[in-house]
Design a protein around this nucleic acid. Structure first.
Lengths: 167, 167
DNA sequence: CCAATGTCAGGTTGACTGATATGC
DNA sequence: CGCATATCAGTCTACCTGACATTG
């Protein structure tokens, strides 16, 4: 890991950018998001390591836990987790190998298969959540208002990019 | 790519999370950042595709362009770009193969090698920047205040995690 | 001798593309 | 037949670890 700098590399980049080009505010915001995402993922992955989970697999488990029956068609999980269909296959492969989910055939549609939480999967999800909430997703330094402002701004962006459709 | 949902998957996840567990504001913010980072990277990578660059290699070129002599020791670039030392080697390998940078020996310290922008590298960086500013990093929907708020909140987080040291 | 610098080999991961088998 | 669902093979990227040669 590189040693910490004595100055803010993003502020410095913005200063230089602004001397030559447009859109320096956007550049600083975009670079900040990319960097903070690295920080958050590192934090959450550390909290999840004892359970042999990463953020993506953990999110899949939580999604299943939140579903009424503890099971969902794989095809429904892709959009909810915002990942590629083949990534869903891979994620469920690993969770199944770990014994946290089972693949079961859909009762009426022979094309679709369901991912279903096992008892152990349910238990691990609850335990892992304790670790994750304990880490506060690496965001414990932010106030409630900052968290809400952050989420609201990002929601506007997600909506504008048709990440989802306003009801 | 999955089809867009008819609702906000993060808001829905927060609703369910909040019924059972702590830290739902942090969960929503963290998930939003992870998702928006995907959106930004996809946008920037699309803008850079005609130049056969990705965000990481483009950032390296910009960093060199901002340096006084158009060259930097590889070891200095890692912390500035916030990437692993071996990633710097890989990034410079690719940029060198593309003819955008050259490796030259450091004049006084035989251990270090410098990455130096070529004329073509300089030209490509300027052209690629036009494409990137044109895309506004995918953030054109946000106001100047939103961009500044966003960057300020994320800066607080980066500072708290010792991403850099306050001077 | 020890520290710093960059490279290399090897392994893991995630994510995508395109093709395919199956069922509606 | 078309379309949808899930999988698979193959590829590519990023990243890390540990070892190494060179130099200060």
């Amino acid at each position: 890991m590189p040693s910490p700098l004595k100055f803010d590399p993003i502020a410095e980049a913005q200063r230089q950018w602004q001397l030559r080009w447009d859109r320096d505010d956007e550049m600083a915001a975009a670079t900040s998001i990319v960097r903070v995402q690295q920080i958050i993922l590192a934090e959450v992955d550390t909290a999840l390591k004892p359970f042999d989970l990463n953020f993506a697999r953990y999110e899949a488990l939580v999604l299943l836990l939140f579903s009424k029956k503890g099971s969902l068609p794989l095809g429904k999980m892709g959009p909810r987790l915002m990942v590629h269909p083949t990534s869903v296959t891979n994620i469920i492969d690993r969770l199944e190998a770990q014994g946290f989910v089972l693949r079961v055939p859909h009762p009426t549609d022979g094309r679709t298969t369901l991912a279903e939480l096992t008892e152990e999967g349910r238990r691990v999800t609850v335990q892992a959540t304790k670790a994750v909430t304990n880490s506060a997703f690496g965001l414990s330094v932010l106030t409630a208002k900052e968290l809400k402002d952050l989420t609201a701004i990002l929601r506007k962006l997600r909506l504008a990019t048709k990440d989802y459709i306003e009801s």
